[in-house]
Write a protein that binds this DNA or RNA. Structure first.
Lengths: 132, 132
DNA sequence: ATTGTTGCAAATATTTTGCATTGTG
DNA sequence: CACAATGCAAAATATTTGCAACAAT
């Protein structure tokens, strides 16, 4: 396997992911990193995001909006997609890891894990729509 | 809203989805429908798949393999993705609808539902890998 | 010096869309 | 006859990749 070398672009991308709470798309990462490295290219952003995912330092999230989102928090947690404002949020909730056992009962393969995406209205959109 | 007219292409696509167990991609639907309608175009397939989804007669499934898969069975059920053979399967398992309540506890928005994708090794790949 | 990484641009690949034509109601 | 649906091709969109230059070890 190839060795890994430091790059300031990659470090900046990793730090941005860790600091961001919005689960940014590659495009959004690109626009933010450009403020630090005006010459960075979108290809480099994609390469580094994929690198981070493959090295367990970021998660790929797919909420069906046509963009892949990235999450710098790799600890297991669940996500929520607001179908009104299209925001992708972290959910602070009790563990549902037990659903793996439910899925495994009567299944002859191996359930290694799952990804869940809850959807509905986020707190802000709920309030907004109440007033209409 | 525009009225809906019958088309034999759409009916064939719907029937194919209902008969198929493999959660086909648009391309696979296209190749199969071409055996009945050799002149059908991929655009028509996409338009009809989207039509069916928007009219509650099919589901869009995203398992992260870069293709959207379609499911003619609209009753709530869960899916499994084998990361070895890349197959997308239905899971016959007990309901896990209660996770909506777990997600809603302490959440100020509205949880309307969820999509889950379990992943791991399908029965066949499990056996295959055992022998290596 | 070696080779991983970048920036740029071109290429991929999937899905959508414009438009003239065909088909349904 | 009105207009929804089709077939075809072109366009749009997101992501990947080839390559020469640059930078880390």
């Amino acid at each position: 396997m190839p060795s890994i070398r430091y790059s300031k672009q990659r470090e900046a991308i990793k730090n941005y992911l860790l600091s961001s709470k919005v689960h940014p798309t590659a495009e959004i990462v690109y626009e933010n990193i450009k403020e630090i490295f005006p010459n960075i290219s979108l290809g480099t952003v994609y390469r580094n995001l994929n690198f981070l995912v493959e090295h367990g330092q970021a998660l790929r999230l797919d909420c069906g909006d046509g963009f892949i989102h990235f999450d710098g928090c790799t600890m297991p947690h669940n996500h929520f997609f607001c179908h009104n404002c299209k925001m992708l949020l972290d959910l602070d909730m009790d563990s549902i890891e037990h659903i793996n056992k439910i899925a495994n009962a009567g299944f002859n393969g191996i359930i290694e894990g799952h990804t869940v995406l809850f959807y509905g209205l986020c707190p802000e959109c709920k309030e907004l729509l109440k007033k209409i």
